[in-house]
Design a protein around this nucleic acid. Structure first.
Lengths: 138, 138
DNA sequence: ACCTTTTCTTGAACCAGTCAAGAAAGTGAC
DNA sequence: GTCACTTTCTTGACTGGTTCAAGAAAAGGT
């Protein structure tokens, strides 16, 4: 993923190409599941004077455009990842908070269809597994 | 569910019986999926001078004791419900934020076992469906 | 280059939730 | 019942992630 790749992905969804956006997109690819604060740190290695607001704005814009995905397990601050468009879920360590990707048990994502949705029109199913990571199990 | 029932459920899990706790337990039964602010309002119909902190403390204690369940879809404030111990999930309306209960598509909750948990020991799976409620679909 | 629109900077504000110290209430033993 | 001990509640301040707002700067089309 070169800077040019990120540029083209921005243009591809009709967004203006700005240095903060390219840097944020790169940061999300570099640091999966990082929170906003960590991403600000990564972005500032390239753009030392970028404002936190620019990062917040970029993250929102990129999320709305579908270039990144926001995840926010209960009780934790928002985190971002670059894997989008697939049906993967997350497992969160109750102890240290680390997050890992998991694929749904059954390939076709059967659990994503509720038995009785009470008249709701469902367009997304979000699954979060809770437990303990290998380091915290010892 | 009488006040006495709530008392006994509190004693049953080894908690002291206090007026705020009984009132909070009753409020969660009365107003499912309500947020803390709404619950404070309900509790204050019985105990007008109860502090918000007492409600926060009670909700945390009751949640930890397993008498109520906290749910917190991303971007929304925490909400509470009295259905505990079963395997039900929730559907959230993107438009108005209303929450409804849903049961998992397959009775045995197959999606609750991740195919590859990356070494995590999983003890809970949380499913949130996103969509639009009947009122907001029109 | 110029103009228009979008985005970024700066700095303040918001708000659900938490922390802390002392007062009040619950519980068990006597 | 009453006492003593412990937990819980009240009061009020505070935190921290996130958002809001106004003006300056940068993108992009012509």
């Amino acid at each position: 993923m070169t800077p040019t790749d990120h540029e083209q992905r921005l243009r591809g969804v009709g967004l203006r190409v700005t240095r903060p956006r390219v840097a944020v997109l790169a940061a999300v690819h570099e640091a999966p599941h990082a929170d906003t604060d960590a991403l600000i740190g990564v972005v500032r290695r390239d753009l030392p004077d970028v404002s936190h607001q620019a990062v917040y704005d970029s993250l929102r814009t990129l999320t709305e455009a579908g270039l990144v995905r926001r995840i926010q397990p209960r009780g934790l601050v928002a985190r971002y990842e670059s894997r989008v468009g697939d049906n993967h879920h997350h497992v969160v360590c109750r102890s240290c908070g680390v997050i890992a990707d998991v694929d749904c048990a059954v390939g076709e994502a059967p659990c994503l269809v509720a038995s009785d949705a009470g008249g709701f029109v469902i367009d997304e199913a979000e699954v979060v597994y809770w437990g303990r990571c290998p380091s915290c199990t010892d």
